[in-house]
Each structure stands twice: as C-alpha cells, then as structure tokens.
C-alpha cells in the first residue's frame, strides 16, 4: 500500500511540475544552469567510463572467440551492438542515476530541510515547477547527446584496445562496426535514453522534495533516490526492449 501511495504522490507531483513557468527569463536562466550542472559536468565521467567499457567489451569478445571458424570482424560487430543497444543507454544511465540522482535529491532535500522551499512557496512561486521542470528539460534534451557520445567513444575505445593489445586487426574491427548497421538501433537507444533521463530527473526530485527531518534524512533520501532510479531504469529497460525490439 505504501508503494502505491508513493506512486500516486509522484504523479501528483508531476502535475504540479508541468505548469507554465511563472517567468520565462528566470526559467531560461535555471535551464542553462541545470544543463551545466546535470549535463556538461557529467561529460568527464561518461567519456572516461564509455571509452574503457568499450575497450573491455572488445578485449573480452576477442578472448572468447578464438575459434578459427568465427570471423574476427565479429569483435567489432559485437562491440558496436553492445555499446549501442545496452552499454551506452542503460549502463551509462545507471551511472548518471548515481551521479546526478544523488545531486538532485540532496540539493532539493537540503532546500526542503532549510526551509528554502517554504520560502519559495510563501513568495507565491510554484516550487516544483521552478525547481524540477528545468532539470527535466535539461536531462531529456542533453542526455541523448551524452549517450550518443558514449556510443561513439565506446566503439572507439574497443578499436584502441584492440590495436594496442594486438588481439585483432584494425581492418577487421572497422569492417565489423560497419557490418549490418541498422539506424533503428540508434533510434531505439535514444528513445530509451529520453525515458531514462526523465526518470533520472524526476525520481530523485521526488525523494528530495518530500524529505522530512534533517541532514541524516537528506542522506537517506539521496541513497533511496539512487536505488529506486536504478531499479526503475532496469525495469523500464526490460519493458522498452520488449516493446521496441521484440
């Protein structure tokens, strides 16, 4: 019953979030700040992780397909497919849920316990709209760019790993990543990314906004936000994959 109550409260929160901003100039200012905080500041970690994940996927595939009957270009093919279909959109979203989710939850939670949200409400400002809508817009529009970059860097990481270790030839890898290229897979990955971006912005915001207590509770809310965001991402990943690919 408690879970249902939270789900209901979450959707009621969304109704308040999706209102017309009270002042467009202030909204624009907030939006740019959120793009910087939630998007640009995640660039480093996404670049680093996707590059090395791509490298590891390529090496693992190369080590596991040492049969002479399996062509070497399959290493590039498998790296490309796994990066585009899963590692970039899902794995990176779980990473972002940890990094950005805890930031959103703790920043809004701290505002709640220090009465800054009450101060907004007393001024006549729709605090949910003011605080959460720019975060949603920033993540939904910026994360597809971030994940596209992750796809590219992951595949590139595989190429670098292969050429450095000498496990496969670069010509085979390049042939593999061009083989059977279906643009729909990119579309599928970006659809997933948009949905996950929405989840990454809203679930932590919910946990932060309704926190009660002090700094300890803000910390707990932050942990819960990351856990629930990751759980929802994994579940949605399953359903979206079945809906879009099966």
């Amino acid at each position: 019953m408690n879970y249902l109550r939270h789900v209901g409260k979450y959707f009621i929160m969304l109704r308040q979030v999706f209102r017309k901003p009270q002042k467009w100039s202030v909204f624009r200012e907030m939006l740019f700040r959120e793009i910087e905080d939630l998007g640009l500041k995640s660039l480093g970690i996404i670049t680093f992780i996707s590059f090395f994940v791509g490298g590891v996927v390529a090496i693992q595939t190369a080590l596991n397909v040492d049969s002479p009957f399996i062509p070497k270009y399959l290493i590039g093919f498998a790296t490309k497919r796994s990066m585009i279909l899963e590692f970039a959109p899902t794995f990176m979203s779980v990473i972002l849920a940890g990094k950005v989710g805890s930031y959103i939850s703790s920043s809004i939670g701290t505002m709640r316990v220090t009465e800054q949200i009450d101060a907004l409400e007393v001024m006549g400002i729709n605090s949910l709209n003011y605080l959460v809508l720019p975060k949603i817009i920033a993540t939904v529009f910026f994360y597809p760019l971030l994940i596209s970059l992750a796809m590219f860097l992951g595949i590139f990481g595989g190429y670098v790993a292969g050429t450095l270790t000498g496990l496969f030839f670069s010509e085979d890898y390049l042939y593999g990543i061009r083989l059977d290229f279906d643009p729909y897979y990119i579309q599928y990955a970006l659809i997933k990314t948009v949905v996950f971006a929405f989840v990454i912005a809203t679930i932590p915001a919910y946990h932060g906004y309704y926190v009660k207590g002090g700094s300890l509770e803000v910390g707990r809310a932050s942990t819960q936000a990351v856990v629930w965001t990751s759980v929802v991402i994994i579940l949605l990943n399953y359903f979206l994959t079945q809906m879009l690919l099966a």
Binding site: M111, T114, E115, Q116, D118, A119, E121, V122, M123, G124
Partner: peptide, 15 residues
C-alpha cells in the same frame, strides 16, 4: 502570497 513577506527561523536564504 506575493503580498506576504516572511522571515524564517533559519533565514532560509538561497545558499
């Protein structure tokens, strides 16, 4: 509410 000013116990300034 725009006609209301409030001073909170902890100040509630945006840090």
């Amino acid at each position: 509410r725009q006609e209301i000013g409030m001073v909170f116990q902890g100040g509630a300034l945006y840090d």
